[in-house]
Design a protein around this nucleic acid. Structure first.
Ligand SMILES: [Mn+2]
Ligand SMILES: [Mn+2]
Ligand SMILES: [Mn+2]
Ligand SMILES: [Mn+2]
Lengths: 234, 234
DNA sequence: CTCACTATTTTGAACACTCAAATTGGAATA
DNA sequence: TATTCCAATTTGAGTGTTCAAAATAGTGAG
């Protein structure tokens, strides 16, 4: 059985790859895992020995198919737990991440199956992240970051790519939650801000905040000039 | 923060003391924790260093007040989780122990508080074990083991002192569950068996099986000649 | 009082994970 | 081309938990 540490490393590598890196640099992994670089070198070698990752010395790590399977299972547990905490235990979506970070390593396959069943086999967690099914399959969506909007338009918020409780509470206060319909009023590329309307509120977001809001546009719009590089959590 | 291992040792020592030992012998702890004796010697020293236990060399260990507090908190988590799994997730009471054994180390204080609230601040877990409150207070009951019955009589099953799924399923099949009313028909001290009626069923139990059934007698009856020495789990 | 037996302790080692600090490799720069 | 710089690696060490196997202490039997 993979230890808690191994599961967290593998999940992290998966999320970094998901965010666009083919090969995750050791330094990035070190800061994401909050350990010193030498620790990553050691761990990556151990992970490679157990067949979960491959790596190019001085270049970075990449998951093997076995590693990806493990990552998907951990992510499945994490996201189902988050949704369970929100739906059944009435936690706020801003405070479930840390709890899930622990529980994801403690729940049995049987318990996760019960939770999945009780929740009606949901496809997405409270933050809009897709929940892999028991075989590891994940729904693919073509979302665009609000920061990539080039002109005004209308869309639905599908995902918030940040787990920080403070940001999530800020988003909640402004109605920026998955499912909410939003209208881009204007974009200021030089000032790096975007004006929008959500419900009956009108607000302005800066580029990095906007980058965390993933939207499904009602009509084709926006460009893919800047990559969706936010969202490295579960 | 106490590690998972420390929490399990402390809980085990508490339960052994609860079962009548003032000073828990190292060998007993070793077999209960499924480690070799030398490991216990090492661990007990470490636990003593952190102020959770005291010990007499070659005699045994005993919890300090700090150790007892920790034990009660772990037991609280364990038992609330068991009840939650039964009530909310519809697990069978025979299969919740192992799951709780893991989760008890992963849940936050906040989550346990939610669960406690959701369940209506219950006093007992599915096996009839008392649930300590947030301050560590536990209900005290004067229960007697069915194996201590000396003559016929009537009582209510209050606790089943065994976590083995097989035994629990056996008990379920015969209606031997907490809350069930039972009548002792006859006791055979030589043959070490006891005949009883539960609901509309009549059955015979041997001494060790009967020792695991803890009863609150309807009328004063039975003796306390043999100690309640079963029941070393949570 | 001595022997044998058993429970406990000691010793030396391992595994998983981590750090601090010194070293090295490679890429970009001058 | 030689230098500089940063990322990655190596080395040596420490913590927590565990084992196998040898040594020891205390008990009870003879
Ligand atoms: Mn985690
Ligand atoms: Mn999430
Ligand atoms: Mn446990
Ligand atoms: Mn129980």
């Amino acid at each position: 059985m993979a230890t808690r540490t191994v599961e967290d490393y593998i999940k992290r590598i998966y999320l970094e790859q998901q965010a666009g890196l083919e090969l995750v640099p050791f330094g990035r992994l070190a800061s994401a895992m909050d350990v010193v670089p030498g620790t990553v070198t050691t761990m990556v070698k151990a992970l490679a020995d157990s067949g979960l990752v491959g790596y190019e010395p001085r270049q970075g790590v990449r998951l093997t198919p076995a590693g990806e399977m493990l990552a998907l299972h951990v992510l499945r547990r994490h996201r189902l737990i988050e949704l369970f905490l929100v739906r059944v235990l009435r936690f706020d979506w801003s405070e479930v991440h840390d709890e899930a970070e622990e529980l994801e390593h403690a729940v049995s396959e049987r318990l996760i199956e019960r939770i999945d069943e009780l929740l009606g086999r949901p496809g997405y967690d409270p933050h809009g992240d897709p929940i892999p099914d028991a075989t590891g399959r994940v729904a693919q969506r073509n979302l665009e970051s609000l920061s990539s909007a080039r002109s005004s338009g209308r869309g639905t918020i599908a995902r918030i790519a940040d787990q920080d409780p403070e940001f999530l509470r800020y988003a909640t206060d402004r109605g920026l939650i998955p499912g909410a319909v939003l209208t881009v009023e204007s974009v200021d590329p030089i000032g790096e801000s975007i004006r929008l309307v959500v419900g009956d509120r009108s607000l302005t977001l800066g580029r990095t905040a906007a980058a965390k809001i993933l939207v499904a546009w009602a009509s084709p719009l926006g460009s893919d000039l800047d990559r969706v590089d936010a969202g490295t959590n579960g």
